[in-house]
Design a protein around this nucleic acid. Structure first.
Lengths: 101, 101
DNA sequence: AACTATCCCGGTATAACTATACCGGTATTG
DNA sequence: CAATACCGGTATAGTTATACCGGGATAGTT
């Protein structure tokens, strides 16, 4: 047997990852964060929109380096299926009022 | 253009990642750690041998959860190109230090 | 020694998936 | 209107995750 297709749980976790990173980006532009993370803006947008469920470890690590949150915090939060990402603050201090709807 | 081939630097970082995880596994068997991490032993062996340079984020996170070291420690250490992995202690574990909020 | 049972490793194969690029569309702002 | 930013779809080469095979090394048994 070859690689198994992504399970619905993995897809949903990918969507939580995307939403978390989108929130952590705040008011910065996709292009800015992508260039700082040495990845393409297309890749960042795909991850944020949840269309890439299981991105590469270096890719997520580079984005986390740019945006601030620790990798362990990211991993822990995207595995909390019950809670939504909205009521979880990744950055302890820096909040982005433009996103607080 | 499409996806770029892995650079030599990425390949070497993948080899450091594999060596680090192999050391963290210690005397435990590949099968034991793979089952505990919910991945196939083939995948774990490939990552440890450095033949998979950029594994998926959930894969590495699951292995780190099983073996102990924090993801941030892993990411930091495999980016220190100068030092070998041998003289770096991965354990003891600091469990999610940013989650104390 | 020979046999057995685990490990671990390298090679091969393949479907699933990622990372990247381009295009068109929408919304906002100057 | 023009410029900027974001988003969804499409396309594709590169890469991963998985499985199978065979071999070497090690340790325990008869």
């Amino acid at each position: 047997m070859v690689r198994l297709p992504l399970t619905p749980a993995e897809v949903e976790r990918g969507q939580r990852l995307g939403a978390l990173l989108r929130r952590a980006r705040g008011c910065r532009s996709v292009l800015d964060v992508a260039l700082a993370s040495h990845i393409s803006p297309e890749t960042l947008r795909k991850i944020e929109s949840g269309r890439v469920a299981t991105p590469a470890f270096p890719t997520i690590a580079a984005i986390a380096d740019t945006l601030g949150p620790s990798l362990d915090a990211v991993w822990t939060r995207i595995n909390q299926a019950g809670r939504t990402v909205e009521d979880q603050s990744v950055l302890p201090v820096t909040r982005h009022p433009s996103l607080v709807s």
